[in-house]
Nucleic acid binder design. Structure first.
Length: 287
DNA sequence: ATCGAACCTCCAAT
DNA sequence: AATTGGAGGTTCG
């Protein structure tokens, strides 16, 4: 018995889980990223194996899917997103973007756990995918609560309290480098102020941005990542070096005056509208 | 207000 | 084989 979760729009699983928004997925057979490969990842306290289906996702593991688990997956993978609807709001006369939307049809944003997302993107600074994955993996292996399923033991992502108790020095020793201090201090604030990041979901864009950038190691880029990948702020628009290159090459080439780096985000948001973040993911994926 | 360098560590490219 | 420079960013001077 295999469970099928239907998505509202076509779903491109591999593009979605390997497009730099999440660092927890891996192909079960190393190096297999093909259309019908199986991928493994941990969401919450459960380990999943999934593969793409005709119009949605096929859940290989766990064997039995409760309604609650189905809801968790639907939520995480944003299965209800209507991509046609979402892209209604972007400029129509944009040939470059239109092509990307067609080429990467089915690429979705994820809705991750905000705490895990925050730590992940603090770790992403001045860093590459491969090492970010290892850092996040180490955090889970060394600090995370242990669970088991039919394939053995695995660890879920630790709470802020656990990371705080683990301490800066230990975080350093498992490979976070200078980010250890940021993650530790962020965890301390989370615990001391008893922060519930899920509440930030209901904040305005500006309030969410100000709230998140108070955390050490969190600037405009990281905050926008967390807002977009975990807090339902679809107008969030993270500008990293790759996005910067696309923007300067395709959109904001000098027409008279040079547009400064820190105006790229606001200008892009104005240009791409309330779902600018979805556009961002397609622009990013094209690089 | 703006700018560049430093920050840890890994690893691919010399 | 050893060494260097850059990596999806933030902070500090």
């Amino acid at each position: 018995m295999v469970y099928l979760l239907e998505s509202k729009s076509k779903y491109d699983l591999t593009s979605t889980i390997y497009s730099g928004q999440s660092f927890v997925w891996n192909p079960v057979i190393s190096g297999e990223y093909g259309e019908d490969s199986i991928h493994e990842g941990i969401i919450g306290n459960e380990r999943y194996r999934i593969r793409s289906a005709l119009h949605g996702l096929e859940i290989i593991l766990p064997l039995k899917l409760s309604k609650k688990t189905q809801a968790i997956l639907g939520n995480y993978f944003r299965l209800d997103d209507d991509l046609d609807d979402i892209f209604q709001s972007v400029p129509r006369n944009d040939g470059y973007l239109s092509k990307l939307i067609i080429r990467y049809k089915g690429l979705h944003l994820l809705r991750q756990d905000p705490w895990e997302c925050l730590v992940s993107f603090i770790c992403s600074s001045n860093n590459n995918m491969k090492r970010i994955r290892r850092m996040i993996d180490n955090i889970r292996q060394f600090c995370g609560p242990k669970h088991s399923d039919i394939n053995g033991i695995f660890s879920s992502f630790p709470s802020a309290k656990i990371l705080m108790d683990f301490g800066e020095q230990n975080l350093r020793e498992i490979g976070l480098g200078f980010r250890a201090k940021y993650v530790y201090e962020t965890a301390v604030i989370m615990v001391e102020e008893n922060v519930d990041l899920n509440e930030v979901r209901n904040f305005s864009y500006q309030d969410a941005l100000s709230f998140l950038t108070r955390f050490p190691g969190v600037g405009d880029k990281v905050a926008n990542c967390v807002m977009l990948f975990s807090l339902d702020q679809l107008r969030a628009f993270p500008v990293d070096v790759w996005i910067k290159r696309v923007l300067r090459q395709e959109y904001f080439f000098c027409d008279g005056i040079n547009i400064s780096d820190n105006m790229l985000r606001p200008n892009s948001q104005k240009l791409f509208g309330p779902n600018a973040g979805y556009v961002n993911q397609y622009l990013f994926h094209s690089r």
